[in-house]
Simulated assay, not measured.
Amino acid sequence: MTAIRAYAAPSAGAPLEPFEYDPGPLGADQVEIRVESSGLCHSDVSMINDEWGLAQFPLVAGHEVVGTVVEAGANVTDVRVGQRVGLGWFSHACHHCDPCLSGDHNLCRSRGHTIVGRHGGFADRVRAQSTWVFPLPDGIDAISAGPLFCGGITVFNPLIQSGVKPTDRVGVVGIGGLGHLALQFLRAWGCEVTAFTSTGAKADEARRLGAHHVVDSRDPEALDAIAGTLDFLLVTVNVSLDWNRYLDTLAPRGTFHIVGAIPEPLDMEAFKVFFEQRRVTGSPVGSPHTTKLMLDFCARHGIKPQTEVFPMSRLNDAIAHLEAGKARYRVVLEADFA
């Protein structure tokens, strides 16, 4: 078995360095992908820094992978060798628990993650259960497709799970790696879209990406002016804000939906929830079925992330670029192993 070449963090917060490992025999339900590119997500950086206490070192991150299937296990029938595919946050499901049998493999009780307890896509090859490996439809740009498999499905999944309607008025809090994709999805979905951003320079860009309205999230008066108008509020940020004021933007029976990894407990007044019969919900990345729906939707409407490309050999530079807040809006790493 040929060793897999990768870039790994030897310890929490350490610069990534070349690393090789023996993957062992290919599982009967697995495929091996030759990596062409991998998106660099904030979740990769959180894992490298062990912010969530889930990392095992040396850690090979990378969970927004695009590449070609080079080997398939004996029981694999859903993808074939030679297909260009994508792989995201999840890499395994049991297929026999109640969530799996209901089609909610992303809620599997024993689900596996691409970079938790195993090595991910900052490598020349990566493996995963074929359930979580998705052929790219025609019309999907291969070099920028990787971020769809984490950032994209994270903001598309709520549209399906919460039954967002084309007639809904929807707000998106945070116009970054997640939010800039959410604006595109929601505009194509038919919604009236409001973008909330603290960066004035992003206002015109938010409109170009799909927002009908832009609200300065630092201005309490601007937030108060739209109180009671939104049916759905999608929160993509990973910092704490004045959540009660954002709750007030929702109409009766409106939904406050979280997809950002906010580290602190949410400070919300119960009265603001139950007097208006509002809902506070959240979701992870989507099931295999929802991911396929997303890919078809992206191909149909020409939706793709705005990307900056680095060679994978400059991974540490790319991480510094992301941590400095300079990425607009997703960083993609092209594999350049000799």
Rank of each mutant, 00 (worst) to 15 (best):
I153M: 00
G117D: 10
A74P: 13
L159V: 13
G139P: 14
L87Y: 07
A145F: 13
R111K: 12
T131C: 07
E51M: 09
N49P: 04
G86W: 08
F134N: 07
G152T: 03
S130P: 11
M47G: 02
G139L: 02
Q56L: 05
G82H: 07
S144W: 12
R109G: 07
P147D: 14
F134H: 14
R109Q: 09
G146Y: 12
R118A: 11
A74G: 10
G112H: 11
Q129L: 00
L87P: 10
Q56W: 03
L136G: 09
S38D: 13
H119C: 05
L40C: 12
S130Q: 13
E51D: 14
G39S: 01
I115H: 11
C41L: 01
N157A: 15
R118M: 10
V69A: 04
D78F: 05
P58V: 02
P147I: 07
H92T: 03
W132K: 03
L87H: 09
A93R: 06
Q129V: 00
A74M: 00
I143R: 14
W132R: 10
V79Y: 13
V69T: 09
P99C: 01
P99A: 10
I143F: 13
F122W: 13
V45D: 14
C100R: 05
V81Q: 11
G88K: 06
C41D: 11
G121V: 06
T154L: 04
G73F: 12
P135M: 04
A61I: 08
A93S: 15
A74E: 15
H42S: 11
R109W: 10
V69I: 15
P135D: 09
D141G: 07
A55N: 09
R111W: 06
T77Q: 13
G152E: 00
A55R: 11
P137L: 00
N106L: 03
R125K: 10
S102K: 04
S37V: 00
V66W: 06
C94H: 14
V45H: 15
M47D: 07
R80E: 14
G62C: 08
P137I: 03
E71C: 06
V155R: 08
F90D: 05
S46I: 00
A55W: 14
C41I: 01
P158R: 08
H113S: 01
D138E: 15
V66Q: 03
T154D: 09
Q129T: 08
R118G: 07
C41G: 07
V60E: 05
D124C: 04
G152V: 00
F149R: 01
G67I: 03
E71Q: 15
D50Y: 12
E71S: 15
F57S: 08
C94S: 10
A145N: 09
S110T: 13
R80G: 10
C108V: 06
P158T: 12
T114A: 05
Q83M: 12
A142H: 13
D98Q: 09
G139S: 13
W132P: 07
H119I: 04
F156T: 01
